[in-house]
């Protein structure tokens, strides 16, 4: 990957931006260097997560929201995630097909990502893709998770506003009491509102929300009824999203959310740097394969094996070690 890509992204070059996203997804070392340059320009976009079961209407709702936010003068980014096959590692990324109502213009950028083995409803490259869109100057970024069941709740770590899309006929109030996805919504959407049971579902959700202790100054989740295929109820949903945004701004919760996200990003970065180091410097000669073999035979346990790796790691780390060049060069080399 050529250098200077970050500058092109900041100047609004879509070819450079999409190539950078590709590099980040493929974990290209230079792409990460470019992201370092972009990082100070991020943190401005508002991030909205949309989750819910497969077929609930997440993509269609986002398709409507793109047009609505564009009409309100906002620049829109979309990150749409679909699952990777655990067997063939291929993927069908079919969210975009429902997002074609908007007029083509330079202020809409949609990117489809495959989970590539990540659980939790997102993919590893989600946050870095968001960063690139943020640096491109998008005002609002809509993130669509994979079709989620009950526990794919990672979106709450990434989004400022979390939307959970439900449809009528998905179970009784016991389902609603369960932990996980029903707890993360800032806004519930009952889509396919023309189907019998939509009003009842809305009422049940309202009861569920009202049963929870509500402290003054805390956001109370709202419930929106939509029919995404005919763009009904979506204006109200867009307004509700912006209302939540305003609430976060005045209540100070936004700062809190961003701080929590910064912490997670740091921990993710440490983990992936460490794993890369281990793969490159300790895994030589199938060391990890050997450990896995031992584990399978129950000749050791994962905890002792991990501690052995960490011990080896700390002995390898010399004062001159540089994680950027991944070499143990002389200290002077570090400033390069």
């Amino acid at each position: 990957m050529e250098t200077g890509i970050a500058q092109k992204v900041l100047a609004g070059d879509v070819l450079a931006a999409s190539r950078l996203m590709r590099g980040l997804e493929d974990e290209d070392a230079n792409a990460i260097e470019q992201l370092k340059t972009l990082y100070p320009h991020t943190g401005k976009a508002y991030i909205v997560g949309v989750t819910g079961s497969p077929g609930a209407g997440k993509s269609s709702i986002i398709g409507c929201l793109i047009g609505i936010f564009r009409r309100r003068g906002l620049k829109v980014g979309v990150v749409a995630i679909d699952p990777t096959s655990p067997f063939t590692h291929g993927a069908i990324l079919g969210d975009r097909i429902r997002m074609q109502q908007y007029n083509i213009d330079n202020d809409v950028f949609i990117r489809s990502l495959a989970t590539r083995g990540w659980s939790g409803g997102l993919s590893k490259a989600t946050i870095s893709t968001i960063h690139v869109m943020d640096a491109m100057g998008k005002d609002i970024i809509l993130v669509e998770t994979v079709g989620a069941g009950q526990a794919e709740v990672d979106i709450v770590r990434v989004a400022d506003t979390a939307i959970v899309v439900l449809t009528p006929g998905m179970g009784d109030e016991i389902q609603m009491m369960k932990a996980g996805i029903m707890e993360i919504a800032d806004i519930f959407v009952v889509n396919k509102a023309d189907i019998a049971g939509a009003e009842e579902l809305k009422e049940e959700l309202k009861v569920m929300i009202s049963m929870k202790p509500h402290l003054p100054g805390q956001w109370q989740p709202s419930v929106a009824l939509t029919e995404a295929v005919c763009d009904r109820g979506t204006e109200e949903l867009a307004t509700e999203i912006l209302k939540h945004k305003e609430f976060l701004g005045t209540s100070g919760d936004m700062t809190e959310k961003r701080r929590a996200r910064a912490k997670l990003e740091l921990i993710d970065a440490i983990e992936s740097s460490l794993m890369n180091y281990i793969y490159r410097n300790i895994d030589k000669g199938d060391y990890l394969e050997g450990l896995i073999e031992d584990l399978t035979r129950r000749a050791t346990d994962p905890y002792s094996a991990a501690q052995r790796i960490i011990t080896q790691l700390s002995q390898q780390l010399e004062p001159g070690y540089d994680a950027v060049t991944n070499s143990s060069g002389k200290p002077a080399d570090r400033n390069k």
């Binding site: 291929g90 069908i92 975009r96 489809s112």
Partner: peptide, 15 residues
């Protein structure tokens, strides 16, 4: 789309 997915590719559908 299905056969390319099964060949390990990421297939983006536009229609």
């Amino acid at each position: 789309a299905g056969l390319l997915r099964d060949a390990g590719m990421e297939v983006i559908l536009l229609g």
